[in-house]
């Protein structure tokens, strides 16, 4: 479970995130919808303890991101969009193992987890090959496996389908839905309306660091009397331009 309380982040004179609060329950996908520079990545980086909040706090499974960052990192898995961020000269297995070890897994648990992931993502054929020459889809599977090797209960996805072709994007979408089935709490940031509409149980619209509104898709459609999330988003964001 994720509980965010009055989280703010200031970079010199720029307030990237302004006093945001929200909750994500177990087995729930919350879509963080906003334009580029709206504060989505900064919010996720704070939740992942990569950035220190200027004000406010958040709790991941009751662990404070400020007081217990290491425990928080044990609970979360994170998948970034754009570059998959793998070590080309290591094999797929070595890449996943490295992250397992850095997450303090013991040898047996790590081996079992990796074998499970190999089956789950059908990586048998290439698990012991260096990832440098992999296709984007293969790399995506390895990156996903790496993000969950330590079996996190909370997943953060930062624009995970940016730059992906249809097949690779489908792998990510299926994975997000699978995480929900496993009861994980999921935050998923995107600027694609269709993607957010398709995957999210709840949507938070963020603009210039502030939450504009949040609720289910039905809530938005009823409140703004529009059928299309794109129109709703433009209306909300447009009012604040």
């Amino acid at each position: 479970m994720i509980v965010v309380k009055g989280l703010s982040k200031k970079f010199k004179d720029v307030e990237a995130v302004k006093d945001i609060s929200f909750t994500v329950n177990d087995g729930e996908i919350v879509g963080l919808l906003g334009e580029n520079g709206a504060g989505k990545t900064t919010t996720l980086r704070m939740l992942a303890t990569m950035l220190k909040p200027t004000k406010g706090t958040a709790f991941i499974n009751d662990y404070s991101i400020i007081e217990e960052p290491q425990k928080v990192r044990k609970e979360i898995g994170i998948l970034f969009g754009g570059e998959v961020g793998l070590y080309d000269r290591l094999t797929a297995r070595e890449n996943i193992e490295y992250f397992g070890k850095l997450n303090s897994m013991d040898e047996k648990d790590m081996k079992d987890s990796i074998n499970e992931l190999i089956d789950k993502f059908q990586m048998e054929e290439y698990i012991d090959r260096r990832v440098g020459k992999f296709s984007r889809g293969m790399k995506q599977r390895v990156a996903i496996a790496r993000s969950i090797v330590h079996q996190p209960t909370v997943m953060l996805f930062d624009e995970p389908t940016t730059g992906l072709d249809v097949t690779a994007a489908k792998i990510v979408h299926d994975f997000i839905l699978q995480c929900r089935e496993e009861g994980k709490s999921i935050i998923f940031s995107s600027h694609s309306m269709q993607e957010v509409e398709r995957l999210s149980d709840r949507i938070i619209i963020i603009h210039k660091g502030s939450i504009m509104d949040e609720g289910t898709i039905d809530y938005f459609k009823k409140k703004y009397e529009k059928d299309n999330m794109e129109d709703i988003f433009i209306q909300l964001v447009g009012e604040k331009r």
């Binding site: 303890t49 044990k74 994170i78 970034f80 998959v84 070590y87 080309d88 850095l102 997450n103």
Partner: peptide
């Protein structure tokens, strides 16, 4: 440049 730094910082390693 490879984009590996951010995932690294999300691990439990200090």
């Amino acid at each position: 440049e490879r984009g590996t730094l951010e995932p690294l910082l999300t691990t439990q390693a200090s």
